[in-house]
Nucleic acid binder design. Structure first.
Length: 184
DNA sequence: TTCAGGATGTACT
DNA sequence: GTACATCCTGAAC
């Protein structure tokens, strides 16, 4: 299992390193999982696309200011939950957003942050929980590594120069939320 | 107290 | 490609 130390470092390094790891969710003792294939880094307080942009600190963003290795779960568009892993030491509000997983047995399609949460029954009850059993945690099953593709983030068009920064990390997979545009 | 808008997904043309 | 469901959050008032 990946412990707090894994998340207590540069957010870009964490974003790359979580690719291919298993995201495990336990619901009443039932264990389901998926393999992480698409994530984005949010580098507050400098990052204008982050909820913690400009050092914004509110009840919602509070978890990101806390210690690493915790879940930050929020609701967007009034209906979709999104899951993040809090990175960096307490006081530095950065996180990695989970955008897609390759679903394990019995898990529905999970291509897109809202679908990941729907497929694994993740909602704001899990906001702030530590990434360890018995609710939600990451496991390294030493899957064969794949090449990492880096692109701009999705859905942050209105964030000035931060909109175009290469902060989305993917493994090539049929389960990405958007197809990769590979160079010819 | 009010109100604009959002780290989205689905259906439909 | 565009429409829209649906409601919390944050900031202004």
């Amino acid at each position: 299992m990946l412990g707090p130390d894994f998340f207590d470092r540069d957010t870009l390094a964490v974003a790359r390193a979580v690719l291919g790891k298993l995201l495990v969710r336990e619901i009443d003792g039932l264990r389901v999982w998926g393999r992480l294939v698409e994530v984005e880094a949010y580098l507050g307080p400098d990052d204008l696309a982050a909820h913690s942009a400009g050092g914004r600190r509110t009840p919602r963003t509070e978890v990101m200011y806390g210690p690493p290795g915790h879940a930050y779960v929020y609701l967007t568009y009034g209906m979709h939950h999104c899951l993040n892993f809090v990175t960096r030491s307490a006081g530095t509000p950065q996180a990695v957003l989970v955008r897609a997983i390759e679903p394990g047995p019995g898990v529905g399609r999970a291509s897109g942050p809202g679908l990941v949460c729907r497929a694994l029954d993740i909602d704001r009850r899990l906001n702030g929980v530590a990434l360890k059993p018995p609710h939600l945690y990451l496991v390294d099953d030493h899957a064969p590594r794949r090449r990492v593709y880096v692109t701009r983030r999705i859905g942050v068009e209105s964030s000035g120069e931060w909109a175009g920064k290469p902060l989305r990390f993917c493994w090539d997979s049929p389960f990405l939320s958007r197809k990769l545009r590979k160079a010819p």
